[in-house]
Simulated assay, not measured.
Amino acid sequence: MASLVNGTSKPRAGKHHFVYPNFNLQGKVYIVTGAGRGLGLCIAEAMTEAGAEVHCLDRLPEPYPDFIETQELAEKSHIGSLHYHHVDVRNSKFLNDTINKIASREHRLDGLVAAAGVQQVTEAIDYAPEDVTRMMDINYTGVFMTAQAVARRMIELNNHGSIILVASMSGLIANKGLNSVVYNSSKAAVIQLAKNLAMEWGPKGIRVNSLSPGHIITPMVQKNFEEVPGLKETWEKENMLGRLAHPEEFTGAAIFMLSEASSFMTGSSLVIDGGHTAW
């Protein structure tokens, strides 16, 4: 996992080793959606350093330069590997076909990080039905169908493992200063989805948890700051640490949730929000 130095990602030098071996993902195969950039890509990078073969699914026809740089870094310095697939999670048939091909490479699939999501800042009274449908198709249905496709292959291969659904603290609260009712509702649905999938798939050896980050400085959030003047300052004041998060600050939690270090954890919602929801 890259360390954060003055807000930039910098690889650490030295030999690869695992101080606590339960965090080792070496030899395992995972899928990460929404990993073209932002939080999904940052988590995927950390997974390659922990040893995983990571397949990134994103709706961008070509990955952002950030992805190419991360892929090159993984090839040179990490134990695992990073791969890109152009997939829109709303296309269930193509999604399933892609996941089946990935699982067939090594005849294994160890889990998923479902991080694909979109946001729309709109007054609730102005939402059109098609806007609601579009967001829920990606943020909820797409997450569900991706988890289903991954779990189906894991069960067929008798491959136990872990699934992380990336929700948000926005699924627990209303975000002061930002009107995004559908996004928040979709994340609440994802939190509930994880609990129910955990119940159904636990006996089959598949753990399912949700990860609920607080406000992170990502391209999506930067766009919010452009749309709503003063929003960054508002959110910083609402946080017990007086600042917003960087994507790198969630990678440790993701590795923990995917690895044997969390072997008795399922049906949980892990909230990492700088104390925002603890007031």
Rank of each mutant, 00 (worst) to 15 (best):
R243A: 12
P61M: 13
H107D: 10
H16M: 09
E200V: 14
S77Q: 14
A52H: 00
A46G: 15
V181E: 08
Q120R: 05
Q148W: 01
K76Q: 15
G80D: 04
V221S: 11
A167C: 07
L193Y: 08
A167K: 02
E130A: 05
I99D: 04
S162Y: 03
D126E: 15
A278L: 15
M1N: 03
G177T: 00
G34N: 00
F144N: 09
N139L: 06
I173A: 07
H246K: 10
H215W: 10
G161N: 11
I217A: 07
A2K: 04
G7K: 04
A174F: 09
S186C: 11
V143T: 15
N196I: 07
L241D: 11
G40Q: 03
G38F: 03
S186V: 09
L270P: 00
L39W: 01
W201M: 10
S9G: 14
V5D: 11
G80Y: 01
V19G: 12
F144T: 04
I79E: 12
S262D: 10
L258M: 11
S162E: 04
L39R: 02
G171P: 05
T218P: 07
L258G: 06
G117Y: 02
D88C: 10
T70F: 05
W235G: 00
L231Y: 09
M136F: 11
R152W: 02
V19E: 12
F256P: 07
G202T: 04
L95F: 03
R152M: 09
P129E: 04
E238P: 03
E249A: 05
V5N: 09
G205D: 14
G161C: 12
S268Y: 03
V5I: 14
N159H: 00
I99H: 01
H86P: 03
D126Q: 10
D131P: 01
F264D: 05
K187E: 11
G27L: 08
F264K: 05
I163W: 00
D110P: 01
R37K: 12
P229G: 11
L157F: 11
K204G: 07
A35Q: 00
N91C: 03
G205W: 13
N209F: 06
T234P: 01
V166T: 14
L211D: 02
V54L: 02
Q26Y: 08
G267E: 08
A194P: 06
G177C: 04
I43Q: 06
I31T: 07
Y84P: 00
E75T: 10
W235D: 11
D88A: 08
T141N: 13
Q148L: 13
A124T: 13
V150S: 13
E233A: 14
K76C: 09
H55A: 03
G205C: 14
C56G: 07
N209V: 06
L258S: 13
R12G: 12
P247D: 03
S104N: 14
N96V: 05
E156T: 13
F18M: 13
E260T: 04
E130S: 12
P219F: 13
V5L: 15
F23E: 11
T33F: 02
P11A: 12
S212N: 08
L270V: 15
F94A: 15
I99T: 05
L178C: 14
K93G: 00
E72L: 14
